[in-house]
Design a protein around this nucleic acid. Structure first.
Length: 195
DNA sequence: GTCCTGATCCTCT
DNA sequence: GAGGATCAGGACG
């Protein structure tokens, strides 16, 4: 699986239009080479957070928490939420622009035994079917905030097969901006967080 | 300093 | 479908 490194998405991939990047990430592989072993999963659900979007963390300017979003594209933005969970985002657009793509669900491809141990769940569909779940299953921590997705232990690879049709809907768990169609998932996947 | 809110998950009912 | 767990950031004084 280390051969996947050959397919690492370049920084230019993330530098494009955020909504476009969110769609193109569907079907790509998120990989984490942890000391305990490698875990990998196919991205089946994403959400875009863009400029002028009230639900975007960057909408009220840069703070110590969201500063990674304003940096160069191709870095991981990991933040703490609800007192218990972390969510993983890929920073997009150009430096100075606070935009990112939230990865909401994965289809486990490798290291499912590790994922089960980290999650305490057996069913494959319960391992990565939510933003906080996949972070836990992949072994991602706050230490990964600001990690370079093009040259670190945490990276994303280009898709190996052409994904099927994807569905565009509204985002989950937000109030303002909830009418914007910025959530994307692979149609029919049993691994998405919800329909 | 204090108060409030939240891009969630899990366990009930 | 509802509610609790649990805590960092941000707004305000």
């Amino acid at each position: 699986m280390s051969g996947l490194r050959g397919g690492i998405l370049p920084r230019s991939f993330y530098a494009g239009d955020t909504v476009d990047v969110a769609r193109k990430l569907l079907g790509c592989i998120l990989v984490h080479e942890a000391p305990q072993g490698i875990t990998a999963g196919k991205i089946v659900e994403t959400e875009a957070y863009i400029q002028g979007d009230p639900a975007c963390h960057a909408s009220r300017g840069m703070t110590p928490r969201n500063r990674v979003m304003f940096g160069a594209p191709g870095y991981a933005y990991v933040y703490f939420i609800y007192g218990m969970y972390y969510c993983f985002n890929a920073v997009t657009a150009s430096a100075g622009v606070g935009e990112a793509v939230l990865v909401r669900a994965l289809e486990p491809l490798q290291g499912s035994h590790l994922m089960r141990a980290r999650r305490g769940r057996e069913r494959l569909e319960d391992l990565c079917s939510g933003p906080a779940k996949l972070v836990q299953a992949m072994g991602i921590t706050r230490e990964h905030n600001g990690a370079d997705l093009t040259c670190s232990q945490l990276f994303v690879c280009t898709r190996e097969t052409v994904p099927g049709k994807f569905v565009t809907t509204t985002r989950i768990g937000i109030k303002e901006g909830s009418e914007m169609p910025l959530r994307f998932y692979l149609e029919g996947s049993p691994f998405i967080s919800r329909k």
